[in-house]
Write a protein that binds this DNA or RNA. Structure first.
Lengths: 153, 153
DNA sequence: CCGGTTTAGTTGAGAGTTCAACCATCGGCG
DNA sequence: CGCCGATGGTTGAACTCTCAACTAAACCGG
């Protein structure tokens, strides 16, 4: 019983390690910068971004969770904290009494607008500046493939 | 003062989003599998892996932190928990009385050996199976470039 | 060999995440 | 209509991570 494990060959091994190291370093760096400059982890920043891009700057909790790649539970806790900070407001959903709508406040939008240049600069410096245009293209294809592979199964 | 922000162009935007989505999905999936099968987050698994690859299966705390891409503080907490689980043991360092040496126990090694096939299978299924050999090669180069860029600055 | 600085590692508090349990409402079906 | 499973969302506890503060030992200049 149980097929033999398909171990990683040396190239795959190297790829996996490098990917882990790079991703961890990148995320840690961006997280620390965002925490230092705006007092907010990257996950929270992304919630605000998603809200800001939506007509009316509002979204149902579950849609927001999907958009931000977050679990329901995580989003509940996060929105609770964002609400305490005055960046998000909760509203009842008129068409479904179970529903909650998260609304980005003006203050939240202003905070985001103030934070964006610094954060984008960080993404550029730490990620795009290190890669050739061809590599950016490769990374896009790889990531899109992976994203589909992972969420589609 | 202050140069204009170098905003992301549409291609970069797409790349960055896809990268975030893919990485988050991949890590979440592997973390959940490891938690379910071995009762251990991925970060802890990696600590055990690093220890297992070393002669004598032991490493100074700070070397282990570097190898596992972890902060000192995180490693202290992690090793405390791994020690409580019986997978790691702490020893005094003979050459530096400030030092501590983390040693992988036989039980820890056995746990790792039991967990490895399942985890490797996960990495293969969720990552490598979705990519062409050329893409694996691209991902390796990109990751190595990034890792160097991020840790070298 | 003394005092100041750096390095090794730990600790505790605060913040974020996960998981399972939970309540309420919605939708379908007999 | 009335029940029942599915959906939307929250909650609390346990766990992990971060940050800053701290102890202790090593290193270094005078």
């Amino acid at each position: 019983m149980g097929a033999m494990t398909r171990w990683l060959d040396p190239d795959e091994q190297r790829t996996w390690r490098a990917y882990l190291t790079a991703t961890r370093a990148l995320m840690d760096t961006l997280d620390r910068e965002l925490q230092r400059d705006v007092g907010m982890p990257h996950a929270y920043y992304e919630i605000l971004v998603r809200l800001s891009e939506t007509p009316g700057r509002q979204l149902r909790m579950s849609e927001l969770a999907d958009a931000a790649g977050s679990s329901r539970s995580r989003l509940s806790h996060a929105v609770a904290r964002l609400e305490a900070a005055g960046w998000v407001r909760r509203e009842e959903c008129p068409t479904d009494r179970r529903g909650q709508i998260a609304v980005l406040t003006d203050e939240g939008f202003a905070t985001l607008a103030a934070a964006a240049p610094g954060h984008v600069e960080g993404v550029r410096r730490h990620l795009f500046d290190a890669l050739t245009p061809a590599q950016v293209d490769q990374l896009r294809r790889i990531s899109e493939t992976l994203a589909e592979h992972l969420t589609g199964s």
